[in-house]
């Protein structure tokens, strides 16, 4: 834990952090789901949050994205200009507007709306401003038509990037599972986030689809997807170790609500504490020796 605290107080020189989580604690009644977890995500990098089931990964996610109000701790989001926003305790929609987009462990699309409509709902905030908050658009008096055309073009670019262009006018609920997963990522990206949080994006995908997903995430990180030009930092929870080790720049390991490891994929893979957490506890002596 000492290492983590030093990390939070003064980030090492040369690390450009987008997200800093400081001593985050989440308590549900008597259950301590997350216990003083501190970690940071670098700008323009993919940071993976891994751990066995029940380690508290999704709870950390829900705290970052405003679905839970953390019991204690701080969550800081730094934009490219150096401005710092405290996310803890803000309502979910304000966090989304600050530039944090997320997907869900069980996809949460709007099943009765088409893929295109799903992506337009994601652009609600800028579109709503363009309508003059509804009134101008009803009267047909605003810059809304142009804003909507731009929004449709952006949606088209993301549908293309996720291979869904030919399904654009199909209801999201009728898409195959893998396509729904990709559509959810496209929808999150349409909110123009600076940090994309993905909760188990590869769950339920076949190996080929996981491969495509990895390529998509790398393209999003580097700003090559959908002609965006701007990179996007990614924080992801994932159980598929193949995907994690292939694309992550940094891996944070949680177990029983505590951070047990933090480093590059190679470092984490070799960490005996991580191996113990995944394969079952070894003897006390073994762990001490390590």
């Amino acid at each position: 834990m000492a290492e983590a605290r030093a990390d939070a107080a003064a980030p090492p020189a040369g690390r450009d952090l987008i997200l800093e989580v400081r001593e985050l604690t989440m308590r549900f009644g008597g259950l301590l789901a997350v216990d003083q977890v501190s970690f940071a995500a670098d700008r323009g990098r993919i940071t993976a949050l891994i751990g066995p089931n029940g380690a508290g990964k999704t709870t950390v996610f829900n705290c970052i994205t405003g679905f839970y109000r953390p019991t204690a701790g701080a969550i800081l989001l730094r934009d490219a200009a150096g401005g710092v926003a405290e996310l803890q305790g803000r309502p979910g929609h304000r966090i989304a507007r600050a530039g944090v987009a997320r997907t869900f462990q069980n996809t949460r699309l709007f099943p009765g709306m088409t893929a295109l409509e799903n992506l337009l709902v994601a652009q609600h905030v800028p579109l709503m401003a363009a309508t003059g908050f509804g009134i101008g658009a009803v009267l047909g008096l605003s810059r809304y038509p142009r804003a909507e055309r731009a929004a449709i073009e952006k949606a088209r670019a993301w549908l293309d990037a996720t291979g869904l262009l030919d399904r654009a006018d199909d209801p999201a609920g009728a898409l195959p599972y893998g396509a729904q997963r990709r559509l959810e990522i496209a929808r999150a990206m349409c909110t123009e986030p600076i940090l994309l949080c993905l909760d188990e994006p590869a769950a339920g995908l076949n190996p080929r689809e996981s491969e495509e997903l990895s390529a998509l995430l790398l393209a999003i990180r580097d700003g090559q997807a959908a002609g965006r030009g701007r990179g996007c930092s990614i924080l992801l929870i994932e159980h598929d170790m193949g995907v994690v080790m292939r694309i992550s720049d940094r891996v944070v390991v949680l177990d029983h609500g505590r951070k047990i490891a933090d480093g590059t994929p190679e470092q984490v893979r070799a960490d005996p504490k991580v191996i113990a957490a995944y394969l079952g506890e070894g003897d006390e002596g073994e762990e001490d020796a390590a």
Binding site: G92, H93, A96, E117, L120, H124, G134, V138, R187, A188
Partner: peptide, 28 residues
């Protein structure tokens, strides 16, 4: 007209999934 506007789409999205709306920055 409202149905074709962001506000109407937000209403329909709200009917479909309120939590997803929040994650997209829509003030519920």
């Amino acid at each position: 007209r409202l149905r074709r506007q962001p506000l109407g789409r937000a209403w329909e999205a709200l009917r479909e999934d309120e939590i997803a709306c929040r994650a997209l920055g829509i003030n519920i």
